[in-house]
Amino acid sequence: MTPLVELRKVSKFFGPVISLKDIDMKVYPGEVHCLLGDNGAGKSTLIKILSGVHKPSEGQVLFEGQPVVFSSPREALNQGIATVFQDLAMLPLMSITRNFFLGREPRVGPLRLYDGNLAARIAREELLKIGISIRDPDQPVGTLSGGERQSVAIARAVYFGAKVLILDEPTSALGVKEAAVVLRYVVQAKARGLGVIFITHNVHHAWAVGDTFTVLNRGRSYGTFKKEETEREKLLQMMSGGEELEVLAVELELIAKRDPAGAAQLERRIAEELQEPN
């Protein structure tokens, strides 16, 4: 099977800074591909390349087997690569319907006017399909919760025929229940045959829905792993970079010599954070 999207030896440099180096990655239809990494690992740069915001400095991006160079997010979108950015690209004071159709308004009549009724009906139907019952499609997006907004953005991408759905940290700002709702839509998008690229630094969320995992660390890839070939703890260790944790331990030791009680507390807290149960 040809991958929907393939990266071959993709690198990105910003002046002297090596943001990404020699990244290989393949995303297949009906697959949730998790992109894991700590802050600064290069996740954002990678999705900006995939979504057409940046062009790679080296290497190739292939879409359905063909090499492509996107010059704008719009171009990537037209090909079927939809990105739901962290800030969502939603306008809080605008209605759900108007947000849903912004940039792709349905038109009606000889004057090609905006077809508000059709737009409202489709928005309502599409949201019902993924399980959100909106009371009023004319209500401002600002009245929705974070999870509902994510869901509207995902529904929009799916409705407009996305083949690849890139989700940038969709669950990071959400509570446990809301995150679960969003994760359910991720699985639904996969069931519809979309290739989903799920960016997160929360291994627990990734593990719950992911089929394959690519781990980035400081601009380089540790490789791609299938779920059955790896373990959650291994991913976690790769993400945080095993060495760095060692360095941290040494530092903590140094601190401990001066303030044993404080250091122990700090260490406990860090350990807890790293193994936060789902």
């Binding site: 990105t83 605008m94 912004l102 905006y114």
Partner: peptide
């Protein structure tokens, strides 16, 4: 403003120009 796609773009461009640009306005 209220009944044309252009009007929707006006809301979008003013609400968040970057977001609007990303969805093709």
């Amino acid at each position: 403003l209220l009944r044309t796609p252009f009007g929707n773009w006006v809301f979008g461009a003013g609400g968040d120009a970057n977001a609007a640009r990303n969805v093709g306005v």
